[in-house]
């Protein structure tokens, strides 16, 4: 079984039930409207709206991405998967699915967010796009790995953000910083270090994931 086949299986079962997509879309709408209600008629600063953007993304990711492995545990299909595919294949299949999900989710959030928040104006669009792409990859890798850990633990729902937050924190801080820079200036020269940190984070996380997934997956 190839990882692409696993991805197609996940996609087919997701399109049949639409569990993750429905709950994610509703979650995004709820989170953004809560922020809009709490702001009311106040004027918020540009940088604050840039930071809140990543708050929405973090909590949406936390609500939807744990499904990848938890659903296998719930349906009792973990043992079958262990029999027919190697851990590396399974992880790359699940990672592919989560990558697509994160990108779709975050593009929706970005479009909604820039339509609803007047203060959220990106001056340097290409810098923001680089940060967005690298950040999404990092979020997808780290949350897929943590999802595989919590699928084996007993309190799945509450543990996921608790375990993910410290791991995602360096990524989030750098992303918030980069978003500020993209809203502030149109030049690239001062942002190379931050982009390099995002790149390093992605590489480190993917290396660690493939090294450690064997130990999580095999009972």
């Amino acid at each position: 079984m190839s990882s692409y086949a696993l991805f197609k299986k996940d996609l087919a079962s997701e399109l049949r039930t639409r569990y993750a997509i429905n709950s994610l879309v509703m979650f995004i709408v709820v989170t953004i409207s809560v922020i809009l209600f709490s702001i009311g008629n106040e004027k918020i600063s540009d940088f604050l709206s840039g930071g809140l953007f990543w708050v929405v993304i973090f909590f949406s990711a936390m609500s939807g991405l744990s499904r990848a492995f938890v659903s296998e545990e719930e349906r009792g299909t973990t043992l079958t998967l262990q029999l027919i595919a190697s851990p590396t294949t399974i992880f790359s299949g699940k990672l592919l699915f989560n990558l697509i999900l994160v990108f779709a989710m975050n593009i929706v959030i970005a479009l909604l967010y820039s339509a609803l928040f007047e203060a959220f104006v990106i001056k340097n669009l290409s810098l923001f796009l680089y940060a967005f792409i690298l950040g999404n990859i990092g979020i997808a890798i780290a949350s897929t790995l943590i999802a595989s850990i919590i699928a084996k633990a007993s309190s799945k729902g509450t543990l996921y953000p608790v375990l993910s937050f410290p791991i995602l924190l360096p990524l989030m801080l750098t992303l918030i910083d980069l978003t500020k820079q993209a809203m502030d200036t149109t030049t690239f020269s001062s942002s190379y270090v931050e982009l390099a940190i995002l790149g390093c984070y992605d590489v480190v996380m993917i290396a660690v994931s493939f090294m450690l997934f064997d130990f999580i997956w095999k009972d």
Binding site: I149, L163, L169, L173, I197, V204, F215
Partner: peptide, 21 residues
């Protein structure tokens, strides 16, 4: 096994905090 894996994942993010940030 799980806590060992988690502490290794957490350990690779520590350099980002302690040395880079």
């Amino acid at each position: 096994a799980l806590s060992a894996v988690y502490s290794i994942i957490a350990f690779v993010t520590v350099p980002f905090f302690i040395f880079i940030m």
